[in-house]
Design a protein around this nucleic acid. Structure first.
Lengths: 238, 238
DNA sequence: CGAAACTGTTCAACCCATACGCTGTTTCAC
DNA sequence: GTGAAACAGCGTATGGGTTGAACAGTTTCG
């Protein structure tokens, strides 16, 4: 019995290069690679919402429905575009601490280059080649901690959350920098209501303007906390 | 000159109860509260994608376009529904460490009750009353650490990321539990390719089935790391 | 050579957000 | 009072998007 890949999660087979063999009929005018590359192009240029079957089809000079000869659904397309756009992780330096910093930095850099990746809805655990490669390299670097694989996975998720967190923050702050007027207006609207509504800590935060900070510092701060926390665990474990 | 709330971020004014005064004309058949409550109902019942202007309008016996008398856009609706569905934070116990645990637990519980809140796209820093209330209570609890407000904000973001992380993980794992057959198939598809493709760590992870774990443990693990990390910082600071 | 298989296309049905203009109602100002 | 301004809700329409069914053309195997 041949492998039934019909009910595998969307994009799994295609992302690993397993595509239905074709024996008869006209040769396809397009290729998956071409379609995915076009999707990434649209994402880079116009954001995540712009990566649609319609647009890609139009760009490639084909009707929308022709796309369904290549992908089963939009979701499948997104999975493929996501994996391809994430690409391969960098080589990590030796030493789990340096490796973790490099890994997180690389992720932040990636999200800086392609902010729209933060908008990709995450349906489940990663199963595509490039995403799993990122997991693999970090997990390998964490092996030297001597912790259990389970704990290492926990650390990795902590680091991943940290990276996504700050990348998202950096994006929204970068976007709001374009309209400092609006930010000012928000403050004027908000502060009186915070004072009346019993938000003393937030008021003092606003008035001290402590929220005006360098994002790199923020990332460094969060990452340092996590790494210190992992260190404590390593020291505790026999 | 009266306050110009026209160009404030969508949902800001409405969430704080500032709604356009109406002097003439028929009384509105609907109220914002009603609309938002209906949106939450749909979210609870059918997930985030189900909260649409069309559906809410139909449910309330009104045409879609009538909605635009109350909210300026779908985004505004989402912001309002989000804030209302999040609700008020719990009372936190004294002691920043216990408070942090309670705060994260409450958030995880919230996302357990309303998983669709994880799908709400985050456009910017929180500005709505309930969301800011969550920030306020945690920031107040962190005041006793003696760290700067800036550092406290960093800690809060760390905790928030942790909560969202594990809530998301819990949801996807809970969803995949419904179809263990598919998970099996994924493994059968994936493992050979991981072995051939040079993913030794992941292969061992898969084969040891170390990924089968209690999620509560995961949360506890991540949270413990973060709290330990914060502790280290407190100990270092004068 | 013929038939099977596969291609892209047209036609079509949906869902969704949003804009415009109309009608009828309410209420303030005179 | 009463008239007119202001406003709610509706119908219609538009544009964008995903997905499906039926069809016609092309390639290649038997």
């Amino acid at each position: 019995m041949t492998e039934d890949r019909a009910d595998l999660p969307p994009g799994l087979a295609l992302s690993w290069g397993v595509l239905p063999v074709q024996r008869r009929g006209p040769k396809p005018a397009l290729s998956i690679e071409q379609i995915v590359a076009t999707g990434i192009e649209f994402g880079d240029r116009y954001g995540f919402e712009a990566v649609s079957l319609q647009r890609i089809a139009a760009q490639l000079g084909v009707t929308t429905n022709a796309m369904y000869r290549y992908v089963r659904s939009k979701e499948e397309l997104i999975v493929l575009v996501h994996d391809k756009a994430v690409g391969l992780p960098p080589e990590l330096p030796s030493g789990w601490r340096a490796a973790a910093i490099a890994w997180v930095d690389a992720q932040v850099k990636l999200y800086e280059d392609r902010p729209w990746l933060l908008d990709v809805p995450i349906r489940g655990a990663p199963v595509t080649p490039n995403l799993l490669r990122w997991v693999e390299v970090m997990l390998a670097a964490l092996a030297e901690t001597g912790l259990s694989q389970h704990d290492n996975l926990g650390c990795l998720m902590l680091l991943d959350g940290c990276a996504r967190n700050y990348a998202g923050l950096a994006r929204q702050l970068g976007a709001s920098d374009r309209t400092p007027v609006q930010s000012e207006q928000v403050g004027q609207f908000l502060v009186p209501r915070l004072m009346e509504g019993g938000y003393p800590t937030l008021v003092s935060l606003y008035l001290n303007q402590e929220y005006e900070d360098d994002l790199d510092d923020d990332l460094e701060f969060g990452l340092a906390r996590i790494l210190d926390g992992i260190d404590v665990l390593i020291a505790k474990s026999p």
